[in-house]
């Protein structure tokens, strides 16, 4: 099952077939999600309309962590089985993850100003997300730092695994340290501590962000494969 997708040509074919569907799902989910987030959900009785920032902030935060986990798993797969697509998946996911992390930081800052009264506090979760952003930047820089792309991919894979220690720290920082940032209210063992009227748009937006991430990942992976092929063709033409 695993090795069937090791063939880049087969992967490209499957990706081409999946892409229109995932793109359509992304658009549909965004339309429904944004409708729910902006119109069909109540404003918070304390925070007012600013609570709607959550529908962008929280899904981006989930994706930014899930993306790093994805990169770490792909890196392990690349290092252990030398799976050719795992390198490309990790390389393609890193800029997406960095983008989502930047969105988390910016929206969090915009949300913090009206509710906490400050753009930024040196709180455990905020700081560890900032570290995650720098880990992404380091990963991207290391991938592109070598003349031999293979060497860059392998070095970045080791870095991704080393940096993975940060993910549990981010996830549990709000439970371990008593900070300004509120603790997890959706992913708890008992029922979520969020009203269904707010939870529905949140989950819809999370789904929309996930499909957007998957679509962009497929696009970027195909582009990467095509770029490699173009380079190989140019090299063989030059000989």
């Amino acid at each position: 099952m695993f090795h069937r997708f090791a063939n880049p040509a087969r992967f490209s074919r499957i990706a081409a077939r999946v892409l229109p569907w995932s793109a359509a799902a992304t658009i549909a989910l965004f339309v429904i999600g944004i409708y729910f987030a902006l119109f069909a959900s109540p404003a918070d009785f304390q925070q007012g309309e600013t609570v709607r920032i959550m529908y962008v902030h929280v899904p981006s935060a989930w994706i930014s962590m899930a993306c790093y986990t994805f990169i770490a798993v792909m890196s392990a797969v690349a290092l252990i089985w030398k799976h050719p697509l795992a390198d490309i998946a990790a390389r393609s996911a890193a800029p997406l993850g960095a983008g989502f992390t930047l969105i988390v930081l910016i929206t969090g800052s915009l949300w913090g100003k009206p509710t906490w009264g400050t753009w930024w506090v040196w709180d455990a979760r905020l700081t560890s997300v900032l570290v995650l952003f720098f880990l992404y930047l380091g990963h991207i820089a290391l991938t592109n730092a070598f003349d031999n792309p293979q060497r860059g991919a392998r070095a970045a894979a080791v870095l991704a695994l080393v940096g993975f220690v940060n993910i549990p720290i981010i996830k549990f920082s709000v439970n371990w340290w008593n900070t300004l940032h509120q603790p997890a209210s959706v992913t708890r063992l008992d029922a979520p501590a969020i009203d269904p009227a707010i939870l529905t748009p949140l989950l819809l937006m999370a789904l929309a962000f996930t499909f957007y991430f998957l679509t962009m990942l497929l696009v970027r992976m195909r582009a990467d494969l095509n770029a490699t092929r173009a380079r190989a063709l140019r090299l063989s033409a030059a000989e």
């Binding site: 380091g138 730092a145 070095a155």
Partner: peptide, 24 residues
Amino acid sequence: GIGAALTLGARRGGVLLALLILPL
């Protein structure tokens, strides 16, 4: 040491090393 080994043979190794290691 991890950072030094990762950036072995990289272009602009010094700046890159700082970017990789300081967050850790």
